[in-house]
Every structure is written in C-alpha cells, then in structure tokens.
Amino acid sequence: MLGVVPVGIADKSGYPVWVQEPELPDYVPNVGMRSAPSLEAIAELQPDLIVTSGQLAPAWEQLRDIAPTYVISVYDQGAQPFARARDMLLALGGILDRQEQARQALADLDQELAENRARLEAAGLTGKPVALVNFMDARHVRVNAPNGQLQAALEGLGLDNAWTEPGNFWGFSMVGLEAFGDLAGIRLVAISPVAPGLAAQLEQSPFWRYLPVVSSGEIYQVEPVWAYGGVHSVKRMARLLTEALLAGGQSNVR
C-alpha cells in the first residue's frame, strides 16, 4: 500500500491461499514460519526494517539486533483493531518516509468504503445484518465478531454484523452452525477458501438445510480475505462483499 516491496516474508506459501492482496512478487524470499521465522535467514537479507506483530514478542530482542524492529500490535485486549491499524499504517509511513502514501492509502480506503456503501444503498441492500464466517468443517465456523478487523468493512458499508457477541483476542468466535438457528433475516457470507467437498456435505445436512438463512437463500461467498490483517483486509473485504451482495444470494457455498 505504501509502494514498498518487502525483502523477505514469512509463510510465503500461505499468502496466495489466504491473503492474495496486495500482490506479492515471486522473487521475494521466504524466511520460514510466521510463528518461528529463521532469524539467520532474516539476518542474511540485511533488512533496513523489520515489521512484526506482538505475537513474536519473545523474539523482539533478537530481531532488534538485526535491524530496527517495528512491532505492530493491531490486536490487543479491548482495542479497536481498525483504529489501531490506521494509526499503525500512518506510523509505518512515517518510519519509511512515505507519510503521503500512507495518508493517501487511508483516503483511498475511506473512498472505497463510501463508494461501495453508496452502491449497496442504491440497490437497497444495507438492511439485513451480515455474518462473515470461515468454514472449519461442515458444522463449525469461525464467525467474525464486532471486535474483529472486518467489522470496519461492515460499518463502512453501513451494514450490521449479525453476530453481536464479542469474540476472542483475534476477533472471532468458533461456533457450531446452530448458533445461527435463531438468527432469521440475516445474510451469511462465507470467506474462501472452503474445504473441497464442503458444499456437498452441507447439501446432505438437514441441519444446514433447515437454517433460516439457507432456506431464504441468503448465502454469499467471497474470495479469500485475511481476517486478521491490517487496513488492506478491510478495503478488500468491502469491495468483494459489495460485489457478492449485489450478485445475489445462493442456498449453498460453492
């Protein structure tokens, strides 16, 4: 978003599956797992700046010995992740001497949210609350809670989150499908990827078929959006969600 290509990234193979955007050039080397990157590989890259999350707090000292390290803690107990993410992007812009790009990126984001909101409002699609879920299996989903990053996308689009309980640290709750049994008049948005064969399994399950949201044909699906990311996740979700809602609901996932 700031026009900077990283010299290295952790968990590169997961990126196209779960995140996709912003695009990652092929030549960027992999430095290992997100939870345990190879310090030696990072050191070899001789980075000017290391950006990491609070989850790697135990490694902070070692990372700081390699290069200046900026710890992004978007997720924290009781914090609003979107506000934090915006602050962090501006701060990062300051560090990289790209304040202008950072401000521009946020302005773009706000504009994107507003435009999509207008499209939804024009189509009269902002009424029903929306639940954003990742399917774990044919019965369990992670539902994005109001304290999650993607809440900002919903709010920006003028949509209500159908799930009103606060989630865990990352802003989701792991629930069985029955949690949606009492929720009539909502829309359910499945975030890709879903496991192969899931649609067939759901088709078989009377439990899924009886779900009010299924019988009313209010199932939508969007391409992968990293629900635990920064502001770009919000922008991507806003665009994809608007398109999905405009395209109309189904009675199953794809």
């Binding site: 797992m33 997100r34 939870s35 345990a36 190879s38 310090l39 989850q55 135990p58 490694a59 000292e61 070692q62 774990m136 992670r142 865990n168 640290f169 990352w170 989701f172 792991m174 635990y228």
Partner: peptide, 23 residues
Amino acid sequence: LAGGGTDAVRLLNWMAGSTWLVT
C-alpha cells in the same frame, strides 16, 4: 487448539520443543 488461532500454532511450536528463541 480447538479454540483455534495463532495461539494454537505457537503452543504447538513450543510443545514440540523449539530452540530457536534462546538468547
């Protein structure tokens, strides 16, 4: 682990015995 998330991965890492963070 059932609660999911990055907690799970980090715990698995430690449980499996990782020496990578020793100073």
